[in-house]
Computed example of a mutant assay.
Amino acid sequence: MDSGAIRRRLALGAAVLAASGALALAAPGTASAATDGCAGREVRTLPFGAGAVHVYKRGGYVCAVTVARDPGTRRVMSVSVQARGNRPVVERGRFTHHAGPVTVHAGQRCVWVKGSVNGDSVSSGWILC
Results as ranks from 00 to 15, higher is better:
residue 31 A to M: 15
residue 30 T to I: 15
residue 78 S to T: 10
residue 96 T to C: 09
residue 74 R to K: 15
residue 42 E to D: 09
residue 129 C to W: 05
residue 44 R to S: 01
residue 97 H to F: 11
residue 36 D to H: 12
residue 111 V to N: 01
residue 97 H to V: 14
residue 31 A to R: 15
residue 54 H to T: 08
residue 45 T to R: 14
residue 129 C to I: 09
residue 38 C to H: 03
residue 9 R to P: 02
residue 104 V to W: 01
residue 105 H to T: 08
residue 78 S to A: 13
residue 21 G to A: 13
residue 62 V to D: 00
residue 75 R to P: 00
residue 34 A to H: 10
residue 123 S to N: 15
residue 82 Q to D: 02
residue 89 V to N: 09
residue 10 L to T: 08
residue 85 G to E: 09
residue 36 D to S: 13
residue 112 W to Q: 15
residue 107 G to Q: 08
residue 5 A to W: 02
residue 126 W to V: 10
residue 17 L to M: 11
residue 25 L to W: 14
residue 9 R to K: 09
residue 43 V to F: 06
residue 26 A to Q: 12
residue 75 R to A: 07
residue 95 F to I: 08
residue 30 T to G: 11
residue 24 A to V: 12
residue 100 G to T: 05
residue 39 A to Y: 12
residue 19 A to V: 10
residue 78 S to K: 07
residue 126 W to P: 00
residue 112 W to V: 11
residue 25 L to M: 12
residue 117 V to S: 03
residue 29 G to A: 06
residue 60 G to V: 03
residue 27 A to L: 14
residue 116 S to F: 04
residue 7 R to H: 07
residue 52 A to M: 04
residue 11 A to D: 13
residue 128 L to Y: 06
residue 85 G to P: 08
residue 21 G to C: 11
residue 90 V to K: 04
residue 45 T to A: 06
residue 37 G to D: 07
residue 31 A to F: 13
residue 81 V to K: 00
residue 111 V to K: 00
residue 5 A to S: 14
residue 121 S to D: 13
residue 84 R to C: 05
residue 10 L to E: 15
residue 125 G to S: 10
residue 56 Y to A: 02
residue 104 V to I: 11
residue 51 G to S: 08
residue 82 Q to M: 14
residue 93 G to C: 10
